[in-house]
Amino acid sequence: MELKDIINPNNLVYEKPKLLTENTMHYCPGCSHGVVHRILAEVIEDMDIQDKTIGVSPVGCAVFAYNYIEIDWQEAAHGRAPAVATGIARTNPDKVVFTYQGDGDLASIGTAEILHACNRGENMVVIFVNNGIYGMTGGQMAPTTLIGQVTATTPNGRDVGRNGYPLKITELIAQLPGTSYVTRQSVHTPATIRKCKKAIAKAFQAAIDKKGTSFVEVVSTCNMNWKMTPVKANEWMVENMFPFYVPGDLKDGSKTDPESYTPLKN
């Protein structure tokens, strides 16, 4: 058998989504970001919304997300992606807008922006990659860092007295009347990747259907700053993060019907 017999369209079982660019990703080998990017590219391609989707990238390791998916992108200041996305969504109601944010970006410096965008029920998708650490800046504590977890700013492990409690921001988000679909996923096995893809597709559909803000948390690994091999990091995540950040849907519906409020009479 010759090489050309092997490299043959009939034998194709797996290929790069068309919307992923040729650029080599800067992520560490084993990082969850790359997998989530791929899913996004596939979903946007499957839904055929490339020409009307606008992505907003965060400040964090995914700051360069705009290098990898062939759509229009904007780069926001640290934590401000939901406000930037609101600006786009409000002035371009026929477009599909999503933010892509890390846990520091979304749940620390950008808490106000994410809560208020979700509370207003902006028609957009939020992809929230929670790896429990500040990846880009070299592994400092994030709001989602677990109790006892060692980071560059918690060298002896996170301590409640000094650092407060790990923040279950997704649970908070799910309480907000403006959100439609709120879910927690992961991408560490083929099965969870397929599930996550379904969730992201559903989130995009909800935004297109103007149901309010849809929010997909992806519990992720940062093997580099956790100082583990990718395989070990996945195991650590399952063992330590899943009991606290329990995967599954937190809310599945539509934003609260405004009619259910009785406005005050003037």
Binding site: G104, S108, I109, Y134, T137, G138, Q140, A152, T153, T154, P155, N156, R162
Partner: peptide
């Protein structure tokens, strides 16, 4: 403080030194 390159070592050193 809040982490940002190129000065994150300030807080990292403090956390390591445990001046409290």
């Amino acid at each position: 403080g809040y982490p940002i390159t190129p000065q994150s070592e300030v807080m990292e050193t403090l956390m390591d030194r445990e001046p409290w």
